[in-house]
């Protein structure tokens, strides 16, 4: 059964994105009015200035993997509310439920088996629209299970990272996910399983300071915000204006933290090639 057919894919991509409603939209990159459908048909990339809009997990999977090849796993790992966290009247679990139905996803990280240009791999994709793809216990556990799948099946692990940071509503447990996922990467390393990360807009905070920055190969999408402390936090702390282009993918590339910046349209062939070259022994 095909995962998504082409026609539907276009409309899904349109809905699951940061694009405001309307026929025309102003591109945050070139500040020009662009025809929305043109952006949608271009994998959510501005046809004029190549600004890469954020993209939901399922839409990402649709443009990345061989049609019908994604087999989601570990959906049973679900969020709990151990801190009984409440903001006003809204409980944490209510917020999660709302995010679930908005994003049509079971958590901010989706993992499973997939084929990319014929190569089988374990794939994890984060959804920036699901509570800013923040990392709580369920996200951490799913990452670890995906890593375990990769080790057992002797498959590479590819993770498309995006995150606003830690899932604050899980307090210290969300901090502990940094250690937990780092341990999973250590196990991948010891098992000599290739681990490729793609950092997309935004990859920050606890996710950047754990599994997202521990890839054997680290790729990034153009213009993505990548950093540990968020730019507003730094601006507030230092009371200075941040330099132009600070914490972009290009900035991190120039500082030696990224192997290559890959355009969205090139991501599939790039990963396809790497997966062919780095098949686990």
């Amino acid at each position: 059964m095909p995962f998504l057919n082409r026609r539907r894919f276009v409309s899904i991509v349109g809905r699951r994105s940061s694009l405001p409603d309307g026929l025309w939209m102003k591109c945050p990159g070139c500040k020009q009015a662009v025809y929305r459908a043109e952006v949608e048909q271009n994998q959510q990339v501005c046809p004029r200035c190549a600004y890469h809009h954020r993209i939901g997990a399922m839409a990402r999977i649709a443009i990345l993997v061989d049609e019908g090849s994604f087999e989601e796993r570990h959906q049973e790992v679900q969020t709990l509310d151990p801190l009984e966290f409440k903001v006003g009247e809204a409980t944490y679990l209510e917020k999660v439920e709302k995010a679930k139905s908005n994003a049509q996803l079971s958590e901010a990280l989706v993992v499973g088996y997939a084929r990319i240009e014929e190569s089988r791999t374990v794939l994890g994709v984060m959804d920036p629209f699901f509570m800013m793809a923040s990392m709580g216990s369920a996200v951490g556990e799913r990452f670890c299970r995906a890593a375990r799948d990769a080790i057992t099946e002797r498959l590479p692990l590819v993770v498309i990272a995006a995150s606003g940071g830690a899932r604050m509503q899980e307090g210290i447990l969300s901090l502990m996910q940094m250690a937990k996922t780092a341990e999973a990467v250590r196990r991948l390393n010891e098992a000599a399983i290739p681990y490729i990360t793609v950092l997309t807009d935004p990859t920050t905070g606890g996710v950047y300071a754990s599994f997202a920055a521990l890839g054997d190969i680290t790729l990034a999408e153009p213009g993505a915000l990548i950093g540990f402390a968020g730019p507003r936090l730094i601006e507030g702390a230092l009371k200075v204006k941040l330099p132009e282009g600070f914490q972009t993918a290009e900035y991190q590339y120039n500082n030696g933290f990224i192997d290559q910046i890959v355009k969205r349209s090139e991501l599939r062939p790039t990963l396809g090639k790497l997966l062919r070259y780095l098949r686990p022994q």
């Binding site: 940094m178 780092a182 250590r186 997202a212 920055a213 950093g227 330099p243 600070f246």
Partner: peptide, 17 residues
């Protein structure tokens, strides 16, 4: 700014590992 330029995130990640 300097901490970010020198890899605050990746460095913490590496320490954890």
């Amino acid at each position: 700014i300097e901490a970010e330029a020198h890899g605050q995130g990746p460095t913490i990640a590496q320490n954890l590992l």
